[in-house]
Design a protein around this nucleic acid. Structure first.
Length: 529
RNA sequence: GGCGCUAUGGUGCAACGGUUAGCACGUAGCCCUUUCAAGGCUAAAAUACGGGUUCGAUUCCCGUUAGCGCUACCA
């Protein structure tokens, strides 16, 4: 990607080429459709989070849609940090947002840009709007505008607006400063009467009455009466989207009411509005907007819990979008291939955790084993169970076979280290509940002891699923007990749990010596309880 | 309150004027079985309500209701 610089007014910015680290297997993004034809405007989209919190699943979904759209169209993705509110902004949260995007596999071509560093650009735009009459200096205290209807009451020097209008129009707007001398803010002068239309790729043509829009603030008041402060949201977004040549604004439906204001700003700034695409919101199980009280809303918590990013992405993509048929299990390349704005729905969607978990188990089982292995390796390293001998050669084959044996029963990545501990370490506990369930019969210690000796007699070269099967069943027959009794008891002895993969496969993977040792050991464990 | 958006089983989606309203998650049962999963089969479960338009409405229009969003010198 070429480096570039952009010069606007007196500020010059350059992009930082982003280091596209790979996260497991996620970086494999196939080549999509051809480049736009000559003359066609290349698609440019952006994700613009505000660092007032972590990366919320709603934001993540918006980022994902932008990314899918950009990559599908062979366009550009831009990351912009909207940190114009010095009060609420927490710079340290930016890294978490970036980490979350990486984990999701969402990358970008330009940015991150920080709005807090682009204030001169917004102030320049503010001056232009003031000069062309689209904006005015407002000296009113903020409270006069806050609260809509009540503010009208407070305006004793103004006749009550007639008709349906409930919007404050102060005298500053007409060049009669209400309280001159105080530090003014810059407000947009919303046209009287008429409507503002825009096209939304999801909701269609939309039209809003101008009389319903307040004279929103563009620039906060500054430190002194002849100085402006930082930009407000509406101005910053529009100036940046123009500056960054954004062609499609894909964002949450909570912004639909802001859009006509922004369209007015585009016009006042002599710019062409982009195509808008508002995506429905994500709700909690009670249908209210998804929030902390519904559980985890921070994307990074799902990473910590051990969800596979590709499963999470598949789940998220289907929240408010569908390729049109019944297909659900869509790997990333299929998502990229099929994604289009036409498939985006207009109804809010409930975040259904059980379905997310189902996706995760599906991916755990269906992913090519080589795609899963690095993620299991990372998990074992975290738990201090990793051995370098599993990195290559025969060790790798063993590792691959073992993970493959384990994976149908795994729900989350950490299960490989916890639930499957006995497969990767000799240092494991025997679950008391498993003992209680399968070691009830008083004959068990004797049976396990006999089995140990029988297995020990099998030459290592003959150690196999069938050899174990025959040895165990022969013993069961000789002792006139059901094979199931012995199978269940043996499982507890060699992996410490009531639930594990099929016994003889497990024995093969563990190897003769380990199985024999564990059976012998289990005798003391069974008597001591 | 005002303005706006939305409305298919409990949940996510499909059906873009004509289907016995489909798929998946979840739930229940059965099969498989060596524990537990997975897998297979089956079942219960939906077009919010009321008016239109139409030969025919889940689908188009209006109203009601409900949910959500916006209504800040937050984003």
């Amino acid at each position: 990607m070429p480096r570039w610089t952009i010069r606007l007014g007196f500020v010059t910015l350059s992009n930082r080429v982003f280091d596209e680290r790979s996260y497991g297997y996620l970086q494999a993004i196939p080549q999509m459709s051809e480049m736009p034809k000559n003359g066609a405007t290349p698609v440019r989209v952006r994700f613009a989070p505000s660092p007032t919190g972590y990366l919320h699943v709603g934001g993540a979904r918006t980022a994902l849609f932008n990314w899918l759209f950009a990559r599908h169209q062979r366009g550009a993705m831009i990351l912009r940090i909207e940190d114009t509110d010095a009060e609420r902004n927490k710079p340290e949260l930016v890294q978490g947002i970036i980490d979350g995007l990486h984990w999701l596999g969402v990358n970008w071509d330009e940015g991150p840009f920080y709005q807090s560093q682009r204030t001169p650009l917004y102030q320049q735009a503010g001056r232009k709007l003031l000069a062309n009459g689209s904006a005015f200096l407002c000296y009113c205290p903020a409270e006069r505008y806050a609260g809509g209807d009540h503010a009208i009451e407070a305006q004793d020097d103004q006749p009550k607006p007639a008709g349906p209008r409930r919007i404050v129009r102060c005298t500053c707007r007409d060049g009669k400063p209400s309280t001159p001398g105080t530090r003014p803010a810059v407000r947009f002068r919303v046209p009287a009467g008429g409507t503002t239309k825009f096209f939304d790729a999801v909701f269609g043509e939309r039209e809003f009455s101008n009389d319903e829009m307040e004279d929103f603030v563009l620039l906060r008041s500054g430190k002194s009466h002849d100085e402006f402060g930082q930009s407000m949201y509406q101005l910053g977004v529009v100036v940046d989207d123009i500056d960054m040549r954004i062609t499609h604004v894909i964002r949450g439906a909570d912004h639909i009411s802001n859009t006509p204001k922004q369209v007015l700003l585009y016009r006042a700034l002599d710019a062409q509005p982009p195509v808008f695409a508002h995506v429905p919101l994500i709700l909690g199980p009670d249908k209210s907007r998804l929030s902390k009280r519904h559980g985890a809303t921070d994307v990074n918590m799902y990473r910590t819990e051990g969800f596979l990013p590709e499963a999470f992405r598949n789940f998220l993509a289907l929240l408010g979008w569908s390729p049109g048929g019944d297909a659900e299990f869509l790997r990333t390349n299929e998502l990229l291939e099929k994604f289009s704005l036409e498939g985006v729905s207009r109804t809010n969607a409930v975040f259904d955790r059980p379905k997310l978990e189902w996706f995760n188990t599906q991916y755990l089982q269906k992913l090519p084993i080589e795609d899963l292995l690095p993620q299991v390796e990372a998990e074992l390293k975290r738990a201090n169970l990793w051995k370098n001998e599993w990195a290559g050669g025969a060790g790798h084959q063993w590792f691959s076979k073992t993970v493959d044996l384990l994976r149908p029963r795994i729900r989350l990545l950490p299960d490989f280290a916890a639930w499957s501990r006995a497969f990767f370490s000799d240092n494991f506990e025997i679950d008391p509940a498993a003992k209680a369930k399968f070691w009830k019969d008083p004959k068990i210690p004797d049976l396990l002891s006999k089995l140990a000796e029988k297995l020990a007699a099998i030459p290592p070269s003959d150690w196999s699923h069938d050899a174990c099967d025959h040895a165990l069943r022969a013993l069961a027959e000789a002792e006139t007990v059901k094979a199931g009794l012995l199978i269940n008891a043996t499982r507890v002895a060699i992996v410490g749990q009531a639930v594990a993969p099929p016994l003889f496969d497990t024995m093969v993977v563990l190897g003769r010596d380990r199985v024999v040792t564990r059976l012998r050991h289990s005798m003391s464990a069974s008597t001591s309880s």
